[in-house]
Write a protein that binds this DNA or RNA. Structure first.
Lengths: 186, 186
DNA sequence: ACCTGAACACCGTTCAAGT
DNA sequence: ACCTGAACACCGTTCAAGT
């Protein structure tokens, strides 16, 4: 994670966004407070309100930036189309459950549950990912209906596992394999 | 939902708890504010602080009360043991995804994600439910390992669907059937 | 025992004033 | 253009005082 720090030069919108991602990753949605952002960036609250009209506008900036991060994942998934059926799904599940920005991913999903606009942004990204997963099932030879159902279940399982997070760090590899075996059974 | 209202007589702890459940169901964790509770019960904040030492203690009272509600569900599941394999799982999934107190259930799970102590309470209830689901798979003839894996996936799917909530009201019956068919495939 | 009412700290927001 | 500093409303918390 990038450490956004004050260095004398004026702040950019991206400085505020990066600081926000850091707070979200470290402490979840409730840690995202204007006061803490200002501490981190070593400015006063007035500075925040010069860059953003209010907290709501800042949220929008954050979810836009997050959507851009997700475009990278989508491109990664498109790239995966070269890989054959099961291996491709396995790689997808790995990416779904433990992405590069795991803590941020989780914080955004938690945040979405109490914030309509964040929710919309997350759902939009999810739909793209889900359609790639469905495509993978189609390529494995399932018909439309089966592919739709199985991809929905696999995706919901991933989200469920992400939230349960009994073992926060990593879902054990054997479980990932078993889940896939089950999802691919005819 | 019970409407807790002031009637002249002194308030009980349960009055505060019921008012809290109502706020949680209507507006989620962020709607649970002392000020709103007092409006609802037509008292001032000092009254709250006579019944509870602080917000943290009130949280504990709420999650205890919620755990008691869940004991009813567990008893319902134990009662279901009389039913044979697949029908029993179907009834369980219905109860998992659309319980009597759907909005409260969802609010508690969302709340748990930003509150350690609520999280522990939810996990404790979940473990009991999960072990009943695992038992159902065992009774369907799966061995220990398979039953553990399939019950985990089915439960995670339920949680995932509960959170996605694209269609908030109800998961369509055919999907529920398809998911079960998949989970029971050998 | 049960509650009021006033006080204080904290946080989001506004805005006139500074460089 | 970019930021400070003081002000205000809102909310969690405390506590002396009331019945």
């Amino acid at each position: 994670m990038t450490l956004a720090r004050r260095t004398g030069c004026p702040l950019t919108v991206d400085d505020w966004v990066q600081a926000g991602f850091a707070l979200l990753s470290e402490g979840g949605p409730n840690a995202l407070r204007i006061g803490r952002l200002c501490e981190r960036l070593e400015v006063t609250k007035g500075s925040f309100y010069w860059h953003f009209t209010d907290m709501c506008a800042y949220r929008t900036a954050l979810s836009d930036a997050w959507a851009n991060l997700h475009d990278e994942r989508r491109r990664h998934f498109e790239f995966l189309r070269a890989i054959e059926g099961r291996d491709r799904l396995e790689e997808m599940v790995r990416a779904l459950i433990r992405p590069d920005h795991w803590a941020l991913e989780r914080a955004m999903r938690i945040w979405a549950m109490t914030d309509e606009s964040i929710m919309r942004s997350v759902q939009q990204s999810d739909e793209r990912v889900l359609s790639e997963v469905r495509q993978a099932f189609l390529d494995c030879g399932f018909d439309d209906e089966e592919a739709a159902m199985r991809s929905s279940v696999l995706f919901a399982t991933g989200v469920g596992l992400l939230h349960e997070a009994r073992v926060v760090e990593e879902t054990p590899t054997p479980l990932r394999g078993q889940v896939l075996d089950l999802m691919l059974r005819r």
